[in-house]
Amino acid sequence: MRATRREALRRRYLSLGLGELAAASVFLTIALTMALPRLDHGQDRLALWSALVPLLFVLVQAGAYWLMARSWVERHPMPAPVRAGYRAFRIANIALLGGGLAGVIVWLPDGVAAGVAVVAVWLFGVIEFVNYYVVRLSYPARRWLSTVGQRRTPRLVRDMNAAARPPSTS
């Protein structure tokens, strides 16, 4: 039964990992092919990059986490070097999101649509950060309202915490 659960989790983690990497690719592709060509001013482009870079950073981290977690799920804790990397990412993400917000504020596009789009991209980066490092926000749509209020610890944080505990000797 444990092997079956492990394989089911590995498939789910593969889907989640590839999904996050695909999302990062889609955001980048849309920015490069649709958004940037429509932004006339260099400052507008800087605002978009200020919002987009932190989002891409978090999405790629998330995708890599899920793909790496396939190797330890149901077997052993997150390896110490991976844990150290994600602890550093948590701090780097806060710095990137803060710097991104500063860039968005300084270079906010004059056009309403462009300004709203830039702020929305930055906010999505914040939501993704919170979902992976603070409190789990993503649930199936039909259960979201009843589940999000439970303030569950994200899987990444649980893995980091489990890796920090000494192994049990029982």
Rank of each mutant, 00 (worst) to 15 (best):
V58T: 05
V82K: 07
V130N: 05
W122R: 04
Q150C: 04
L123V: 14
A95I: 14
N93A: 15
Y133I: 02
Y65Q: 06
G115N: 05
A84I: 04
N93M: 10
P54A: 15
W72I: 08
I105V: 15
A141E: 13
P154T: 10
I127A: 15
F89A: 15
W49I: 08
Y132M: 11
L156I: 07
A95C: 10
W122C: 04
S71V: 03
P77L: 05
S146C: 09
V58C: 10
G98Y: 03
A64N: 09
P54S: 14
V119I: 15
A69K: 06
L52M: 04
L101E: 02
R152Q: 15
N93Q: 13
A92H: 04
Y86M: 06
E128A: 14
I105E: 06
A62E: 14
T147K: 11
M68K: 12
V104E: 00
T153Y: 02
W66P: 01
A88C: 10
A62S: 15
V121Y: 02
V116R: 13
L97W: 09
V73F: 04
P140N: 07
W107G: 00
V126K: 05
G98D: 07
R151P: 01
V60D: 02
A113M: 09
W122K: 03
V130K: 00
V116P: 08
L46R: 06
W122L: 13
A69Y: 02
Y133C: 05
V104F: 05
L56G: 02
V106R: 10
V148S: 12
P81K: 10
A95D: 11
L48N: 08
E128G: 02
V106C: 01
L101V: 00
P140S: 04
A62G: 04
S50H: 06
F89K: 02
V58G: 05
M78P: 07
W49Y: 15
A84N: 13
G99C: 03
A114F: 03
L46F: 09
I94D: 00
V121Q: 01
G99S: 02
A117P: 01
S138Y: 10
W49Q: 08
V118Q: 06
R152I: 04
R136P: 00
G111K: 01
G98C: 12
W144F: 12
M78R: 00
I91G: 07
A51N: 07
R136S: 13
R151C: 10
A113R: 02
